[in-house]
Amino acid sequence: MNAPAGAAGGVPSARHRAPDYAIDVRGLSKSFGTNQVVRNLSMQVKRGQIYGFLGPNGSGKTTTIRMLCGLLTPDQGTGTCLGLDILTQGRAIRRHVGYMTQKFSLYADLSVRENLEFVARIYGVPHADEAAREAIVALGLEGRERQLAGDLSGGWKQRLALGACILPQPKLLLLDEPTAGVDPKARREFWAQIHDLAAGGVTVLVSTHYMDEAERCHEIAYIAYGELLAQGTVESVVTASALHMWRVTGPDPAALTRELMETPGIELVAPFGTSVHVGGRDRAALDIAIARFAGREELVWRPDRASLEDVFIDLINRSRDNFR
């Protein structure tokens, strides 16, 4: 690992760039026992941006977010959050960061209002009860403020957790799968709110498994097996993948999928309703592979553009080859 060298070089530039980066970390690594969960991860997030954090289950998203807010100590690496050192200024960082955990972690045996007031008081929000009441209105939880948080439905728990998170007016939001289990309408409202906050100067790092949410982010990062595989705007990530895609429609997509998977030159096969997405990075090889199906009258071939999902599946396929 070249982390120590990268880390040493990263410090001065991190300081220099601190004003325009809300998150600037270099060479972060973290192991649990012998299991290295995050490898040499560097990430820069500009202030006021919405930054999507994607990756398969167990890829290290939660672990990375925990390192950013000081809940886990990185084994290696350095960096800043809001211009404050993540290794030494954890307390100051916590005052200005709102962290929404993946698992609901407000007090189930406190009411909605009591939870919000508790948060407001810990952060020293002036007029905590007033602030809590405003948050309840903003959340649309009026009339339910006396209900125990543990008795809320899953989606409402998520909304309450987000409300508690933004109540102390943090400058940086770290949201770990905030929309898991949230209905489409609430999800849309949630994203509208995130964009409002970002317009007001708040930086948002949000992990998600939803592709449509990734497309709503200013920039995204994709992590697999603890390694950051792609980073940038959705556009640039898709372009950088250099994937060429075809969409093929036919009578028996399941059989077709099996057949396509065994065809050399085709790197990516994804059934998609009645059609199948087929792709590869080597244009010539892909064309040759498809030419083999030329005689099959029942198949309709159309060129397509790579979706973000195609890109991620391709990335994880390739990184698996690297790690296994």
């Binding site: 807010c69 000081g70 307390r91 916590r94 972690s105 948060v119 810990i122």
Partner: peptide
């Protein structure tokens, strides 16, 4: 056990 420690630790409290 209830997971509330994660939120508590992320707050500015000693």
């Amino acid at each position: 056990e209830r997971g509330t420690m994660e939120t508590l630790l992320a707050m500015p409290i000693r």
